[in-house]
């Protein structure tokens, strides 16, 4: 009886020992991941805090009105004509115009490229085209800017009235840069389609084009839109390449071929010329805050689209 009891205790003990070992491992693993996540959150929060505190100082400390900032079309931060004015509407306009136009140019091209790879010649299309498109994604933006400056701008100058620089040049350069984003997302969506869907359409006597336009494209549309929004977000945030071809004049242009500026290009260009803590510098932070806000909006749109996508 006693021996039995002892044995029982023995088992209990070894069990609890084992339990403790697992427990320890679990604890260490959990603390480690928690630590990493905590650090990540800390970094993100401090970036947001930093940008926000600097960006909001323009309005709180320096007394610039939010309305004048967002909707004012005159940008004269050093006050060369009297008092300094901080209207960033031209930059907001430039950012939206270039990225929208870029998406407008890139989307049809990307959709056609991905259809070509998955539907038209799946045998060799993907092998040939996909590496080329992935290569596009790897080219540094300064190279894009350089090519834009030496090829696109002179071409536009010779073909259209104006100096070649401006929204059109920026949008063309950006459209090539975002081509890979949209194409790869659209291609993934197209290759994930169940084969039966296409065959059912064929079996009902639909032609290839009817099948693509009425069955395949509508089915992948939400995913393609996600790609377009991600592409636009990239275009919106791109600074260097745009700065090289857009001209950087701080006013709303009257044509697509007139010098203008974007939020990103204005920030990178002015950054070096301001004194930390000055109103000018704070205004640049406010622009960064606006950029960040727009990025959040893009992320939000993608989230909504993805939820719809799941059906």
């Amino acid at each position: 009886m006693k021996a039995m009891k002892e044995g029982h205790v023995q088992i209990e003990r070894s069990r609890s020992g084992k339990f403790q070992k697992h427990h320890m491992e679990d604890l260490i693993g959990r603390s480690y991941t928690m630590l990493c996540v905590g650090l990540l959150i800390l970094i993100i929060v401090s970036i947001i805090y930093f940008v926000a505190s600097k960006g909001l100082a323009t309005f709180i400390q320096d007394g610039v009105s939010l309305g004048d900032f967002l909707f004012g079309s005159k940008w004269d931060p050093e006050g060369s004509q009297g008092t300094p004015v901080f209207g960033v509407l031209p930059f907001i306009f430039g950012s939206f115009a270039t990225s929208l136009l870029a998406a407008l140019i890139a989307s049809p091209l990307s959709i056609c490229a991905s259809l070509f790879m998955t539907e038209i010649v799946p045998s060799w299309g993907k092998k040939l085209l996909m590496p080329v498109i992935e290569l596009l994604a790897g080219i540094p933006s300064v190279v894009y800017g350089f090519v834009g400056l030496t090829v696109v701008v002179p071409f536009l100058r010779d073909t259209f009235p104006g100096q070649g620089i401006g929204i059109a040049a920026g949008a063309i350069v950006l459209s090539i840069m975002i081509l890979p984003t949209i194409t790869s997302i659209a291609t993934d969506a197209l290759s994930a389609l169940p084969r039966g869907l296409k065959e059912s359409s064929f079996a009902l006597g639909a032609t290839r084009w009817q099948t693509i336009s009425k069955v395949i494209l509508p089915t992948v549309m939400p995913a393609v839109l996600t790609g377009v929004v991600l592409g636009m977000a990239r275009a919106f945030g791109e600074a260097l390449a745009v700065q090289m071809v857009i001209g950087n004049a701080p006013h709303i242009p009257r044509s697509l071929f007139e010098s203008t500026s974007t939020l990103t290009s204005a920030i990178t260009l002015d950054m070096g010329n301001t004194v930390m803590g000055s109103v000018h510098s704070n205004a640049l932070w406010s622009m960064a805050l606006a950029l960040m806000f727009m990025t959040f909006v893009f992320v939000l749109i993608v989230r909504v689209l993805e939820r719809r996508n799941r059906i």
């Binding site: 169940p194 039966g196 869907l197 065959e199 059912s200 064929f202 079996a203 006597g205 069955v215 089915t219």
Partner: peptide, 14 residues
């Protein structure tokens, strides 16, 4: 193909 209907193993509605 209009004269012939076809149904697959996996249901595949549009």
């Amino acid at each position: 193909r209009q004269k012939i209907g076809m149904v697959w193993q996996k249901p595949n509605p549009f």
